[in-house]
Design a protein around this nucleic acid. Sequence first.
DNA 1: CAAAACACAACAATCGTTTGCATTGAATTT
DNA 2: AAATTCAATGCAAACGATTGTTGTGTTTTG
Lengths: 337, 337
Amino acid sequence: MADFKRIKNIAELAELAGVNAGTVSRALANSPLVAKNTRERIEAIAREHDFRPNVLARNLRTKRAGAIGVLIPLGHETAQHISDPFFMTLLGHLADALTERGHDLLLSRVIPTNPDWLKIVVDSGRVDGVILIGQSDQSSVIDVVAERYLPLVAWGANLAGQAHCSVGSNNRRGGELAVRHLIERGAKSFAFFGDPIAPEIAERLEGCRAALADAGLGDVLEVLPAHLTAETAHPAISSWLAETERVPDGIIAASDVIALSAMRALSEHGYSVPGDVKVIGYDDLPLANQTIPPLTTIRQDLVAGGAHLVDLLFRRIGGEKTDSIILEPQLVVRGSS
Amino acid sequence: MADFKRIKNIAELAELAGVNAGTVSRALANSPLVAKNTRERIEAIAREHDFRPNVLARNLRTKRAGAIGVLIPLGHETAQHISDPFFMTLLGHLADALTERGHDLLLSRVIPTNPDWLKIVVDSGRVDGVILIGQSDQSSVIDVVAERYLPLVAWGANLAGQAHCSVGSNNRRGGELAVRHLIERGAKSFAFFGDPIAPEIAERLEGCRAALADAGLGDVLEVLPAHLTAETAHPAISSWLAETERVPDGIIAASDVIALSAMRALSEHGYSVPGDVKVIGYDDLPLANQTIPPLTTIRQDLVAGGAHLVDLLFRRIGGEKTDSIILEPQLVVRGSS
DNA sequence: CAAAACACAACAATCGTTTGCATTGAATTT
DNA sequence: AAATTCAATGCAAACGATTGTTGTGTTTTG
């Protein structure tokens, strides 16, 4: 109400209340060290003047930041955009989980061209911990930092010699599930759409190969390895379809976004899904349920994934040295297969 | 390399270099006041020890934050999730535009139940400005803060008595465009899917009504006003289709997400798109181009929108009192109409 | 009733930078 | 040679909070 003079800091408020700044600090922090009625007097003045202590100063003093850095390292070759649905979906879940714990989320500049990109954020003092959404091709950089900086977790593959803590799904198993399902549905020849340069994708492809070998179908898999993002997937697949003489009847897409493009390209080339060609995606993003036909896919539980990332991070902030987590992917059967 | 002893602050580095802390500060800031070779010596030590000055302390001193708060106020009634594709898409563009300007992005807790939700962020000292993605039903709260806090811009409708600065598209005109297009394609009866409680949606609906009246078709519009999010839209539309005896042949969806659900529900009920029913969406999210058939929609240029938001914000940070911007929506004709 | 215990609040150091001002020694001018 | 510049650095006061220590009165205790 009476906003006649805006209070800038704790000292001014202290003067108004006729006490010392330290007392105000304690009062506002609900410390039992200050008498009930002086606390109430201070609170009243604070409310009246709409005063809130400066968070920056508090953080400097307490060496806490109240924020978690969330970084999306995009390999320099990658044209992949930050607004990729997968990133955004996981980011949304992280935002929910983090705010639930009273922490803000700092989306910071990511320059994988500069090898210090991670150190810069970690050392800035502005975050209590860092979550990486994807490791891109930066696994070794991440390892170096992880060695001395505990509160760091990453979404993504769990690679062989990896030193840092990660949460990801069992991509090999996911690939197996996909292929087995397609075989079950009667597919005889297969194509995999995705670039195995990314370690996750490579693992999925491996899983596919293993499942095919198991079924005695070792040599019926074609791979379209072009790097496939939302924008580039459709033309790439479309021209592949035009060139290919015998289009396979089972397509495994390395992501839902790619699967969507594949379905569209197939439809444009006169193939029906799932009649002529069965398609299976990967991720189970919300949009997978919105397509026509709805997309059969390998589900990665991103809600659980986000929750795990946050949980591990806070345990690490607490000093615990946590292990990586590998989630089991799940087959979700819908209309496209 | 020689990381034998980690440097904690500028003073320690100063000691190593045999100079004063102030000099180090200036050297690291590339001030012309320090001699070239002392600067180089200091930089060498900093590099060797992998030292970077604490950002928090700098910000406290300079009263700059280097971060922009991005808030998504979700009206308390709304079940709309932060991971809504529209929000996420705009957020992605904002992240790109902001990092381009060297600022980070602070996604902060949004509690519209507490009327101070905006003040808390604004006064925290952690942000140089705030961008709101949507105003929800909080326009008056926003106005109050905007009165004393200049660097604040919002995405959304430009309402009549609104005091704060906003960027949004001409929703009325968007509604008109949609209806005119459907009429052109031969539609005779219409339905609008969306909840006019949100001001943007209300304006779109108004535009639809105006265009229909213009064409002498004033009484052929039905409105399904249920609040429609990704999860709730499909069942709502599905049961509406089941109940409705004469399903209209032109459907205007208040968003692409709703349009997707509508297309799916229509297909499940045996209607073909665009044969039996023509569908038009709103937004032109990336996913609109990925559907089968591709979605005709009213495009809001979110890249431009994000750029404008950021531009206005920085001009306001510079002290300028900017006006709101209204973008012209565009009809994008694809396969669904 | 003196001594000890207690509840509050004041004092002052601290977090790690930045920056205006004072100081120094060298270079230039008169 | 004295006086004046000038470039480079040192010094110390901020920025706005938190918190351990010290200092008051007031109450309890033996």
